[in-house]
Design a protein around this nucleic acid. Structure first.
Lengths: 338, 338
DNA sequence: ATTCTATTCCAAAACGTTTTGGGAGTCAAT
DNA sequence: ATTGACTCCCAAAACGTTTTGGAATAGAAT
């Protein structure tokens, strides 16, 4: 049904080879033939069969991205922006994007292995790195190109982009301490997640640098959703001696904490300080607006994608390990001094 | 480098044909050979080259999804959940997902054409349908399988899932009218978007059924973002005779409107009623919580994906045109009666 | 007349798989 | 002895492309 090189060849009375070479602008075909071939190809509406090209060329011009979903449902303003970042860059560089969703766990690696071994993708973008990350272990060991958004404790070397979450959370800790808070709580995320680990560490260090004690019971762990932010914050408010400030590991949970506080009749930014991390678009327009750490997620997607493609093409990468400096965005929720 | 059928054939001393057929469980190969082939394939770590399979089979087991991004950046809690819906279903049915981002406009069709003509995907999922939708026109005309989330005014017949936005907005209109509001505003979205069109229409009808007048100047148009919700709501509040209720075309803008109202010192749910549409996760946990219309976006993704795959496999689809009944979720922002 | 160089072309192999259309052998029934 | 049925196997073609390694012709230089 569709028109192939063979059809064109028949029409112009030349070989498939010549047609192919004409279309690719080789100089061993005469200008007249070349022009004719192009004209006919155009008229017949020829488009190359990319699958056939891929089989021949042994690469796919496609990059893989497996979304680590937690639970069947999954909603995150964060990832859509990241996806836009890599998607736009990939399109610009002529790459396709093969996206899957897969919960972390047993057969997670199978999803990667299948795509690697079947030549479905030329490289991977990894997100939500974990302290011991089997995906990274696997890809390193098979020497398959990938770039990560985030670091890991695995011992192999690989290109990544990350924001310095430890420093980011120290900025938050200093900010809250400077405001005079003494009873400060932290809504952490599962320590297995590398970024959560860094952020908790940074927060602890930041507070101790300012001589503020962080009690164990003031550290709770949420699942990064707004819903859980509400729940964890509520538990903190129920403590006999509740905190005057809550730092959440991400904006979504912070937004939940705000909601929980307001439900209690607390004036956020006055009676209670709340901070987030990520600076998602919602943070600016919440009420009160959320003090947080900015993370340029679109650009990170853009950078990661470009790095990966350079690695695939075996071009040099200027900065293999990029650690972005976090910026504190002070808004209303951290509010007036006590 | 990687192990192919030929390698296995050489090892077991049989032909490539036999190996292939053994691996696929054909019954014209003896049990012993079959067992041997499987064992050797396993030992050698064979994985089929999917690209080669695709070339031969002339289909790709891949479905395409082009995200219509507006502006370079793009953040929407809505789409990530939809993506999870189609991603999970596709994985379950053995399909891959090829995702691109592309702004609506001139060369949008090129992106579709390329994927269609190069056999990169077996079908498409279309979202954010427009009144005159060139994508749908193109796919209909080429008879390429696709399923849409949303309807269109194009004259061709195709399978879709949609929520009855017209009815949804009528429910909102009735709700607000029943609460006694007389000065009601509407933050619309570009009328070119089919769902925006339906929602505005439903709102108008709903109000007139209740004998409430909707002034022209009370209808403003936003770009669906929270930021623009703030802006449009602020303009409404600046009117000489501002509204007592604002219905937004989607939750994100409603959230923005809440923020704008609170900045004015208005008590949302008391001084001003605000409603949204979509029931994104954030709606439940905003403060005050948002009255809205529920849209089961994950399930819609799931359904749409399943319909598309059935259509690709030329199986029958039980319901070609699914119009989901909207449900009103009354929360705090529509608040007490006047 | 022969060799050399350019120019233009192409047959065949290759990428890895599936499918088609049999072939060879065995055993039982005629 | 021939036929038929059955079991197990395989060579070759096909999918559409790119690349390899020349071949054929013509004109220029010797």
């Amino acid at each position: 049904m569709p028109v192939t090189l063979k059809d064109i060849a028949k029409k112009v009375g030349k070989s498939v080879t010549t047609v192919s070479r004409a279309l690719h602008g080789y100089d061993d075909v005469s200008p007249e033939t070349s022009a004719l071939v192009r004209k006919v190809a155009d008229e017949m509406g020829y488009t190359p069969n990319i699958i056939a090209q891929r089989l021949q060329k042994q690469h796919t011009d496609t990059i893989g991205f497996i979304l680590p979903t937690f639970g069947p449902r999954f909603s995150d303003p964060f990832f859509s922006e990241f996806l836009a970042g890599i998607g736009n860059k990939a399109a610009k560089l002529g790459y396709d994007l093969l996206v899957s969703t897969h919960p972390p766990g047993d057969d997670e690696l199978k999803a990667y292995r299948r795509k690697v071994q079947s030549y479905l993708v030329d490289g991977f973008i990894i997100v939500r790195t974990r302290r011991k990350d089997p995906r990274i272990g696997y890809l390193c060991q098979t020497d398959f190109p990938f770039v990560a958004f985030g670091r890991t404790e695995n011992s192999c070397d690989f290109p990544f982009v990350d924001e310095d979450g430890e420093l980011g959370m120290r900025l938050i800790a200093h900010h809250l301490a400077d405001l005079g808070h003494q009873r400060i709580a932290f809504i952490a995320a599962p320590d297995e997640l590398m970024f959560a680990h860094y952020r908790l560490k940074g927060f602890k260090n930041g507070l101790s640098e300012k001589g503020v004690r962080l009690e164990e019971k003031m550290i709770v762990t949420g699942d990064l959703t707004q819903r859980d932010g509400v729940k964890q914050a509520t538990m903190l408010f129920d403590l006999p001696n509740p905190p005057t400030a809550i730092a959440a590991c991400n904006d979504l949970m912070a937004l939940g904490a705000i909601s929980a506080a307001q439900k209690r009749g607390l004036r956020v930014g006055k009676d209670i300080a709340i901070t987030g991390f990520d600076n998602i678009p919602l943070a600016e327009h919440s009420h009160p607006s959320l003090t947080t750490i900015h993370q340029p997620i679109y650009q990170i997607g853009d950078m990661v994608c470009e790095m990966l493609i350079r690695r695939i093409k075996e071009e040099s990468i200027e900065a293999e390990h990029t650690l972005l400096e976090p910026k504190l965005v002070i808004r209303e929720t951290s509010g007036g001094k006590l």
